[in-house]
Structure formats: C-alpha cells, structure tokens
Nucleic acid binder design. Structure first.
Lengths: 206, 206, 206, 206
DNA sequence: GGCTAAGCGAGACGGTACGTCCTGTCTTGCA
DNA sequence: TGCAAGACAGGACGTACCGTCTCGCTTAGCC
C-alpha cells in the first residue's frame, strides 16, 4: 500500500479558498489569453497564491485545468438542480438525438466552454495519460447517456437489437467532434440533423 | 519595385541542405522526446544549423513540423511510384472501405507517423490557423478520395443518390479519428468493419 | 502591566530539550554544509522541531548560531572545570604571550570551532548589530585577558607604563586575526612568536 | 590544455555595455539595500539585462561584486592620472605611515567604498576561494606598498635590517583592519597614530 | 484531578529568488 | 547575402526557503 515518494501533502489542511481561486484564475486566463500563454506563474499571481501551492496539489498546467473544468461542470450541474445534462426520451429517437446534438452545437460555440475544453482536448491528444482521464471523467459519462438512450430504442424496436450502442453512437457523435476539433467542416443544425438521419437509416438504398 | 527593409528572404539562395536537415531533425526530435520538449533551439543544434535559419523560413515550431510532415508524405509517395494513396474500386463498396480503413488502422499504429501527426493534430485543435492548414494540406485531400469513391458508388446504385458524400464519409472516418485522437475506445479491424456496416445500412430496422 | 498582544513567549515553559537539539543541529549543519547552505528549515528538521519553535526564540539564523556557539564555549569551559581559558603569568611576558598565541593557532585550526566562528565573524562584518554582540559576548572577554596580563606586565616593568594595553594587545592579536579572517598569510608558531618579539621591542633600532 | 566543460562563452562577442551596467547596478544595490538583499535578479533588472547574461560571465553574486569593485578602483586610478594610491616617502617613516593610515581611516568611512568592501570581506571570510582572490587582487597590492616603504626605511636605518617587512606592516595595518571588520574599537586619527608609535618603538622599555 | 492556556511538531500558505532553459532578435565573420 | 554561431533581453520553469499562520497534541500550573 504505497505511501508515495516524498511526503504527500496533508489534504485535510488544504485551503479551499486557494483551490477555488486557482480554478477561477486558470479558466479565466485560458479564456483570455489562450492555453499556451497561460502559465502556472500567471495562474498563481492572478489567484493571489504562491506557485508552490499549485505545484503542491497539481502536477501540471493541464492537470489544473482539467480539475477546474470538471469543477465548473459540477457547479453548473448543481446550479441546474442536480440534473446532469441528460437525453430526452419522447419515444421518437431521431427527434431526441437531433435535439441533443443541436444543444451540443450551441455548447461548442459557447466561449466559456470552448477555450478550456479545446485546450484539454489538445493536450489529451498528445498526452495519453491526460487524454484518458479526460475521457474517463468527462467524455465517457456523456457518451454513456447515448448508450442508455440507444438501449431504450432497441427495446422499443427503433434500433435493431444486434447493434452495439457504444459504436452506434459514434456515427453521429464523432463526426461532430471531428469537425469541432479539426475544423474539417462547418457545424450547423442541418449538419447534425443530417448525421442522425444518415446514421439511423444508412447510406445504402433499402 | 524593391520590397526591401527587413522581411522577404531570397528563396533562390535558400540552402536545400539546411532545409532537409531541419526536417529530419524536427521529425526525429518529435519522435524521440515528444512535441512539447522539441524546441527550435534543439532542432537547430541537431540539424547543425543556426537558429536564424529556422526563424528566417518558418514562423513557428508547428510550422516547421507541418512542412516536415508534408515533405515526409511526398517523399513516401514518390518512393511508392507517385501513387498518392488511393481507394480501390472493386465494385464492392463495403469491401473497399473496409480494406482502406484497415490500412488506416495500421498506419495510425506506425510510430514514425504517429508522433508528428498527433503533435500536429493537437496543435491544430488549439491553433485554428494551423488547424485549417493541416486540413487543407493533409486531411482534406485524403477525405476527398472518399468523396470520389462514394460518388462512384452512387452511380452504381450502391449508395442512395440523395446522400451528401462529404457528410457520409464521416460516418466511418470520424469515429476512427476520434478513437485515435481522444482514446475513446480501442482501434481494431472488427471495429472499422463494423463501422462500415453500420454506416452503409443504418441502425434502424428495415 | 501586561505586555500582551502577540510577542513575549513564556520563558518558563520553554523546552530545554528543543533548545539543545537546535544548538546541536545548527552547529552540525554549519560544519557539514557551510553557513550559507544552513537554513532555518534545515535546522528545524534536523532538530526534530517545528520552525515556529525557532522563530519564537531567535530572530535569525545568525542569532541561533551565535547562541549555539556561546553555549558550546560554556559547555567546554564547564567540562574543563570552569577555568575559562586564561593567560599564564610566569613572569616572562614574551613567553606567556607566545604560549597563548600558539594555543590560539591550534584552536583556529580546529574544524569544530572554525566553521561556526568564521560564519559568525563573516556575518558580523556585514551586520553591525550582530558584530557588536559577537564582540561583546565572545571576543571582548578574551581580549580583556590580554589587557589584564599587560597591566601586570606594566607593574613588573616589562611594559612601559604609558602604554595603553587595549591598543597594545592588538599589535600581536590583530595580525593573527587578519591572517585567519582574510587569508593574507600563513599561520604558524614562528609567525606568532615573531609578532610578539616585534610588538614588544618595536621595529626601530634601539 | 583544458577547454573547460560545457561551451565557454565567446569573450570577443561580449557586450561592454552590459558589463558596465551590471557593475553599476551591483555597486548601487549593495550600497542601497545591503549585500544580502542584493540579488542577481535585482542586479539584472536594474542593469536592464537578462539574468543569463550575468550567469554567463560570472559564477556568483560575490564574483560580480568583486569585479565591479576592482573595476571601480581601476577607474578611480585612471581618473587620478594612473597613480595607484601610493605611500609618500619624506624620509620620516613615522610621519609617512601616520599620514597614510589617516587617509585609510577616511576611506574606510566613505560610504561608497564601505558597503561593497565590507560585503566582499565578509564573503571572503567564509568562502576561501573568493577570499584569496580578494587578497590577491586588492589587499595584496596595497600591502606591498607598505613592504616597499619599509624596505626603504631599512636602507636609511629607520628600521632594523633583520625585520621582515611583510610581518612588520601588520603591526599597524591589522589592528586597524580588525577594528573596522569586527567593530572591536573606535577608529580615529589618534588611534592610528598611536599604532605607528607603538609598532615602531615597541612596548617594552628601552 | 480537572481545566486551561501555553509551547510544541508539523506543515500549508503567500511570497521571493534561485539557476536553467528557451524564445525571438541581433551581430559577427565565413563562403 | 545566406549561413553557423551564439550573445542578448526577456520570461517561465520547477525548486528551495523565507517568515506567518493554523492545526491537534502534549504539558504545565492554577484552581
């Protein structure tokens, strides 16, 4: 039961005040000057905190930002009454998916979310460890909602029972993700609507 | 009409030797120590080149790497007899796509390509200008091949004529891209085969 | 007349154990790693003591060391039977001085004394307040012994009565001090013997 | 023929401008805030210079200050017409020495000289390497002047021929040095006059 | 013998400086 | 004039200590 390397800091003595200030500063700086120009020194100064306080609790700039972003999500969820961003089930799968993807399109354009999430995504591409944490803590839970909705659709017969929902969801989610991440195309409601139609009915003639 | 002062170096006098050495050094360093630890100073030293020679011809580390990577692709193409990586047309669309995607799976696992392309993709996520160049010069042409193949399939009736090929290709390409970029799932032949099947025939029962 | 607020710790409750441990740690560290690399944090850790315990009772690193060094001297004196290092009086002033200076030469070469006393001397050069305390508590009493011996010599006629002993002693003490402090020359028995001869009889011919 | 370790900097490319600015800043800061509060960072900022420029050419704060102080002396000498601070020879040794020592008393009280020279002396006490350089480059040459003057005095019969001038000079120089360095007593003209008298004629009755 | 107020070990905190590394610009001498 | 070389001003890195500040825990000394 490893008590790892040199003197783990004492979590119970941790300053909540500083933690919040660091989250706020990190998110603000990433939004204002961009991720690469956001420095640990800058975060510390802006948060009115010693650099060591950051190095004591986080291992890197990306680490700070990931936690800050998660915290932001949690706060938003709490504010919205603990409903953590779900997928409607009106009985019409196509309509439900289109609606959620339209909401996602809106969110992707929201500057407050865009800066930090792009930064984290980029870092994750090149830093596998962070990438996997990003998925485990942020992306994964969201994708799971699609899995659940697709399972329901399989029960009602809207989706073939032999389909793997974890792969199926990528047919409409991944294209949107790629356009957003790599600027491979415009992001519009029509586009996401089309994705849903293509995914549900396929490309081949019936 | 001399456009003098500071800028505009004379391309005709440019040292081919240095350019090659810089490409090689950049690619080698990214592969060896990773993109973030690759520095312009490091590239210059490794290439046996003055820093100014890099700053004279490129605007950033990412810029160097993008050109180096493009050059690498061109060289590979030339070596392979000028066939620039195409999509077969056996008349069986599903088989053709599965075959190409399996080749892509192999390529994504090739360490020589992985390091620089991940680095460029990551940089592109956060740096729109570079991202767009990455798409225009690398990703775009490759996606165009899918567009062409899908058009052919529309002519033979394998794909419905009302389908937009530019969007359709994303149904199987983007999921693979996302799994690779974001570590959202394992990448196997079965996976890509499944993607093609789902994309062509849809999720809904017929 | 309570002098309350923050300051004035209660001396009666002071931990003798900690005080000793701090003295030991300070002297050991100065000897081992040198004065500049000796830190309050290091002393505290080595002494198994909280930093605050040091800051509560001393005002600076130099302060700790000065007390530790004084204590060391007191302990040595106590061990030696309370004779606090005196000057013999055999009736032969020259011989007595030579003998004491030779003993001093030996002491200056003793590593256990050298590290802390050099450190204190150096600090005193640049920090007048500490320098004066160093003189008042350490150097002064030792010089006073020379004053006394010279006074006796004046009574026996070995030294002219119009001589100021406080200045006279410097003729042989200061040169040794300077050679030790500033590395201006080698320190040997012959040297100190010569100093005594020159000082007693002068440089001019008789 | 050692070409030492990692890449010795190219002296011929060195910026004279920066060197001067660094000397000035170092001397000014030591005078204004004291040696311990003088930091390399502070010197760099004040001199309008990058820190690396200091680290490239000097190995420590003390090193910078020593060179700055030597340079200050050289400049003063040059300004005064290349007469590097000498000892008069009027034929009256006592008078000459008293006169020089009185001048030294004045100099020791000069704030512009006091701060840096105290700092260097202190550092030299604790750092033998620097101490020896301090002596070799500053103190030694000055002491040599006394040696020369005493040699002349030996030729004229004012000083006994068997006296070692290098030791003799310490009888009046070292006491002054010690009082200055260690605050062991007041520094006045009477004091230095007395030192000369005692040293020349000894303490014992004739 | 229990209560309470200190000293105590520990160490988190806001800071400052360290010495290193790299950026992007500028200058020097070679080809 | 392009180039290798590298000095320069600047600035961020991650580390080490500073001196202050809480935390619980002993440990007196007074009721």
């Amino acid at each position: 039961m490893a008590q790892n390397q040199s003197s783990a800091p004492d979590t119970s003595r941790r300053s909540e005040r500083s933690r919040r200030a660091i989250y706020d500063a990190a998110l603000a700086l990433v939004a204002e000057v961009g991720y690469p120009k956001t420095t640990i020194e800058g975060i510390a100064t802006r948060a009115g905190v010693g650099k060591q306080t950051i190095y004591r609790w986080w291992s890197s700039k990306a680490d700070v930002l990931l936690e800050a972003f998660l915290d932001l999500g949690n706060q938003a969820a709490e504010a919205a009454g603990h409903v953590p961003y779900t997928i409607p089930d009106t009985g019409d799968l196509a309509a439900d998916l289109k609606s959620v993807l339209r909401a996602t399109v809106d969110e992707l354009g929201n500057p407050a979310f865009e800066a930090p999430s792009r930064a984290l995504a980029a870092e994750g591409v090149v830093n596998e460890e962070l990438g996997r944490r990003f998925v485990a803590q942020l992306l994964g839970p969201q994708l799971q909602l699609y899995v659940d909705r697709l399972r329901t659709a399989q029960e009602t017969g809207e989706v073939r029972p032999d389909i793997d929902p974890r792969i199926a969801l990528e047919l409409f989610v991944s294209p949107l993700a790629q356009r957003w991440l790599q600027y491979t195309g415009p992001i519009t409601y029509e586009y996401t609507d089309t994705l849903v139609d293509y995914a549900l009915h396929g490309l081949a003639p019936r």
